[in-house]
Design a protein around this nucleic acid. Structure first.
Lengths: 365, 365
DNA sequence: CTCTCTCTTGTTTACGTGAACATCACGAGC
DNA sequence: GCTCGTGATGTTCACGTAAACAAGAGAGAG
């Protein structure tokens, strides 16, 4: 298509020519160098500068060189606001989330940012402090004014299913970790499959039943893992012990572990994430319950540290990178096809990583 | 100043009026609703719409209501590209980073995003896959084209100190975790102080010397922690054991731990982060070296999980939230004062959190 | 030699917004 | 009754870019 060099010319770091600096009395008006400035210096029209800037063909070598030289001298950088205005798009994807504290979120966001960058899109973070209806609603509304072509939502969307919230029209959206697949385009880890794998692994080892430490009630991922845990036990005809409730933190897992250590019949626990599993390990260690000899533990996420827990944790591996990739793919498809969000759920498979925290129950020996 | 209501009117979520959707054959030109459209419907001039949209005073009640109604009906949302073009700024801060994988980065970014949002600024993530000179340089250059008023750099800036790289002029910048304080405005955790606290704590417990597991050689934080470790030992007149090199990962800490477990004289280890400390704990556990009875371990970061390691980890607490806060403060000051980046380093203090992984050496008994 | 075709460059215009200025109506003060 | 001020609203224009169209120059064909 464009045989001559890179498609987009980038002016290198500049030397001087920063417009005097203190010359203008009023302040910082007109600090930026525009195409017109470059054109004037190069002795061409601004349209020619535009063509050079965008690597369009049809600019003869000598002219192009002149323009490039002028760009360098003035330190020209294209104004993306003007570009966005002209083209009607921002090449930016917004990401709405609660926080980056959880491993899953930060890794998903990282994958989103990386893949988006590869496609020429930047990522704008829209954090929501406290996950109240109002705050989420506010973020959605604010988003309408934001310089964003599409949005990826990484929050528990069921906070808004009262029906009061409608996404601004014309904004493409993909939702992560939600059961809103009937209304939005959803990308999600196959939570149910993962939980099932965990439970089946423990049952197959010979455990009579499996206890469960849940994530926070507000989390859909946690809900679904708990649901699948229950279902897997029921399918196998095993009793379903009362679940213990955690909040994703290791501390909450520790608290649950102290309680479970006092349950004599408990030989296997499935924690809804690896942090809580870590808390379990600590509690069992302190209470003298050996893992895996006395109690087996399975986590969820497969955070990098899990292989160095004591003992190394058997856990369900989540492919956050893949989730991020599909999110970007999803919004880009919407942007390019111009269509609205097509409802549907895109499930990313999970797999069980067996390490040293699970073993057959001692009573079986 | 503006006594009547909120300064910026936000149109609520709309009902219908999405411009037919399939009506336009050619595609997506003119999907957006502009001020002119609202003005036409409301029977006023677009300037009046602008005034209402920005909450300016001097629009009489009835007119304002008409305009608001028209906005609602059409689903008007202001075009931020046009706004940015008009005002010459984007209300956006760019964050250049390697990845969100490390706890520190993701928590710092979260704090940045939160504080920026509170000031009305959005965050644009500019991830750099592989930290080569070229990639970093590319990101800086690309940034010039990006819709960003200022930049926070969370990478090892010494990758670029060859002098070949100059930040685009007029872009305000704050650098995290760097020794470029002579050239840039730097915000950083007081790495040296933290490392010193860790070493002194172990020496004060009676250990003869302290071994060290470093972070990657490319990391300035790791370098400074190692340097401070060495200095603290020398100041106390103690021998300086050869440092072991890790890469921040728990696995690398585990490898170092296996080596250290074979060192009979090793009774105290300072790991450059908590993940590697976790690896140490695992290695010592597997080799039958009790922590803290046989060997004391100190980490760095105080990640939330550290309190649930086995045993709970003594570590140096870093205040990532404060780092993020000061970064935002720094760039905002630059933006508002219009000045360039004033060189200087802003140190955030650290503190030692003593838990159960440290104790006097057994030989002292 | 002229006509047309192509290749390069210039001119005009629109994108959506909001500051600056213009206009208009109305009421108070002389 | 006239002027002037005040407050509400309209008009013009510029922000920086790039598409669409226009114009000019040179080359090849008749």
């Amino acid at each position: 298509m464009e045989p001559d060099g890179p498609a987009r010319q980038v002016p290198g770091p500049i030397g001087g020519a920063q417009r005097g600096g203190s010359g203008i009395p009023g302040g910082r008006r007109k600090q930026r160098v525009s195409m017109a400035d470059v054109a004037r210096l190069a002795g061409v029209s601004s349209q020619t500068v535009s063509r050079v800037s965008n690597g369009h063909p049809g600019v003869v070598g000598a002219t192009r060189e002149q323009v490039l030289a002028a760009m360098r001298e003035l330190g020209y950088r294209p104004n993306s606001a003007a570009r966005a205005l002209r083209y009607g798009q921002f090449n930016t994807i917004g990401v709405i989330l609660f926080g980056l504290a959880s491993t899953g979120n930060s890794r998903t966001v990282e994958a989103i940012a990386t893949h988006a960058a590869a496609e020429g899109y930047a990522i704008t973070l829209i954090p929501i402090g406290i996950p109240t209806q109002d705050n989420v609603l506010g973020a959605f509304t604010r988003m309408g004014e934001l310089a964003v072509d599409a949005v990826i939502v990484i929050i528990e969307i069921h906070l808004l299913d009262a029906g009061t919230v409608t996404l601004p029209p014309g904004v493409h959206v993909v939702v992560v970790d939600s059961d809103a697949g009937d209304r939005y385009s959803v990308v999600d880890t196959d939570q149910a499959e993962g939980a099932r794998l965990a439970v089946r692994h423990l049952l197959d080892l010979g455990h009579h039943t499996v206890w469960h430490v849940t994530g926070p009630k507000t989390s859909f991922a946690a809900q679904r893992r708990a649901q699948a845990w229950r279902l897997a036990l029921e399918e196998a005809g095993r009793p379903v012990p009362p679940p213990l409730h955690g909040d994703w933190s290791a501390e909450s897992g520790y608290a649950a572990g102290l309680a479970l250590a006092a349950e004599p019949g408990c030989t296997a626990v499935f924690a809804s994430n690896d942090q809580m599993a870590l808390g379990l390990l600590r509690a069992f260690h302190e209470r003298g319950r050996a893992v895996p000899a006395d109690i087996s533990v399975v986590g969820f996420d497969d955070i990098p540290d899990a292989s160095c827990f004591v003992p190394p944790l058997t856990t369900v591996h989540q492919d956050f990178a893949e989730v991020g990739r599909r999110c970007v793919q999803g919004v880009l498809r919407q942007i390019r096809e111009g269509g609205a969000s097509q409802p549907g759920t895109d499930l990313v498979p999970t797999r069980l990583v067996v390490r040293d925290s699970t073993a057959p129950p001692r009573t079986r020996r």
